[in-house]
Design a protein around this nucleic acid. Structure first.
Lengths: 342, 342
DNA sequence: CTGAAAGCGCTTACAG
DNA sequence: CTGAAAGCGCTTACAG
């Protein structure tokens, strides 16, 4: 593939009878160019079909005009719920509005993520980075902080949070409210399937759950909090353990619809009625939760807004050097039949 | 944000006591550098913490090292099924293995897509482009062909397909098989909810459906093919129309699980038994199809492979100028209770 | 096997 | 308001 000789700023300059400096200033909308020259230059650009070369521009301006987005591809952060696509949509939307492109990377481990981050930064390909997931003691957060490169986390950092830009839900409060709602409905024996303990969000949610139980005078029993891997299979396994408890819990909080859905299926197999015998409440408000039988009560975390705000924060970090900003996106609890007896 | 003075090839050259040409050659693994010089240069790079600047490299090599991915964000291509995230995973995986980064753009219309494509190309930010969806008479396909820029479609082009790289399923055959399978089960009155007619995939699927009916001596009736917008609401509406037909069809093919799921719910509301009264078969094999009650027979299109192969093709297009290659990814029909009476 | 030089397409002080 | 010149950090013929 040989590329044909590109039309450059010089061609435009020659045609317009000005210097390339002037053309450059027209491109960057510098105010000190007379309207007339601006116009002739603009016309010449049009006629020649000229387009600025972003690469050359980056080289001298030392701005990539690009934001790196680091996304997990599997595992801990169940990729099956619409969280990531939705957040990504918010990210690309805001970024492109602000004139940034998105460099996307999906990775299977934190080590891989770190390698990509270093590559992006060292090769000057990006001006800032969005981390779409973070865990306790996250090595990527650690690294980005240490080199003071502009970045934002979707989620919360486990350490020095006052110096790290992040956007998150109030997961403590969301789970508190969800649990309180169940206890208000008279549930007194509530289990939880919580996800991977290495994730900050899991910790926060367990805290909210515990707090709500305590306030409701329902004893907190850490044995009834099931953590670890997080997929359909886990949903089945934990659900069957929960069903076997004596007495059987009358409520379960599950932190993802997909897993909740699996649990519901198992409960139904065991002839447990939902919500009569056991209420089920969940997170992410995906299609699954709406269409499940019965429909699942679920917390909508507003992934779109999380994505959008992460970019707003990042751009402030890039352009103004802002650090340590935090934005909380409101959640909404959608109450459905899985917790509401008729 | 002022960036600290970067460590450049010159610093390495000085420290190693060689010219920057030599350092450059070491970076690009040019064979004509002696092992000794190579080693000392490598050491110096290590000691100085040197990393090549990808931007500068791109400028002179005229290669961006980046692939643009154009993704629809809404509408016609129901974003709720895991197709896009999965395909994206295949794309990023293959691309990063081949040393390319991914520039991602999500767009709400073909006009927007075209604008982004032009921007990517004109600003030299990408070496090639993947189109994740295409419609009949697609303006992006038209443009990319006309400028002969390397690109691949996931799906099929409506015109001059012999010159356009694309990877697709055999949607004609998949739907043919699915329909035949229903007629073999004794279904004689099969409706179809097919999706947006402006998409190539919709046309192909309708053709396969028609062919199978004809071969089964079941008359094809285009009135029983429901096209147009494609979401949960559509699923409900068309399903209620279908249920009202006289006689009521004994089978329906729906080209997406989410829509099928909505249809199933409506049928159940109307006390139609599935599959006894009406069999339902669908596409995409998402979580929904597995967890639906009853589980849905669904065609798995292997989005991951579609993504991976699209990149393989694109890289050949970029690096070797290949055009007009086509790859067919095998589909798998997962037969489940929605079409299988016990 | 290695170096000096030109150049990729821009921007930006500096000078006028 | 405009231009000449230097430079961003690299690669690549050309020459030796």
């Amino acid at each position: 593939m040989d590329k044909k000789k590109a039309i450059t700023i010089k061609d435009v300059a020659k045609k317009a009878g000005v210097s390339s400096s002037t053309v450059s200033r027209v491109i960057s909308k510098s105010p000190k160019i007379s309207p007339e020259t601006t116009n002739t230059v603009l016309e010449c650009m049009e006629e020649l079909g000229y387009h600025p070369n972003a690469i050359a521009r980056s080289l001298v301006s030392r701005k990539a005009g690009t934001i790196g987005v680091i996304m997990p591809s599997t595992s801990k952060d169940a990729l099956l719920n619409p969280f990531f696509p939705e957040a990504l949509r918010g990210i690309t939307y805001r970024a492109s509005n602000a004139g940034y492109d998105i460099l996307l990377s999906t990775n299977d481990s934190k080590e891989e993520e770190l390698a990509v981050i270093k590559k992006y930064i060292n090769s000057s390909k990006v001006d800032g980075i969005v981390l779409m997931s973070s865990e306790v003691g996250d090595i990527c957060v650690e690294y980005l902080s240490s080199v003071d490169f502009p970045f934002t986390i979707i989620g919360s950092p486990s350490e020095h949070g006052d110096r790290i830009n992040h956007v998150d839900n109030d997961n403590y409060m969301a789970t508190y409210e969800l649990t309180r709602y169940l206890t208000m409905k008279g549930r007194k024996n509530i289990a939880m399937i919580a996800g991977d303990l290495s994730l900050m969000v899991t910790k926060k949610r367990i805290e909210g759950y515990q707090k709500a139980l305590e306030e409701s005078n329902v004893p907190f029993d850490e044995k009834k909090v099931y953590t670890g891997s997080f997929d359909e299979k886990t949903g089945y396994e934990y659900a069957s353990i929960i069903a076997d408890l004596n007495p059987t819990p009358d409520g379960v909080i599950v932190t993802d619809d997909l897993v909740a859905f699996a649990a519901v299926r198992l409960f139904k197999q065991l002839k447990l009625e939902i919500p009569k015998d056991i209420a089920v409440a969940s997170f992410n408000n995906s299609v699954l939760s709406r269409y499940s039988n019965p429909p699942l009560t679920s917390v909508d975390v507003n992934a779109l807004a999380l994505g959008e705000e992460s970019i707003k924060l990042l751009i402030r970090a890039i352009e103004k050097g802002d650090r340590g900003n935090k934005i909380i996106i409101p959640h909404i609890i959608y109450k459905r039949k899985s917790t509401e007896e008729d």
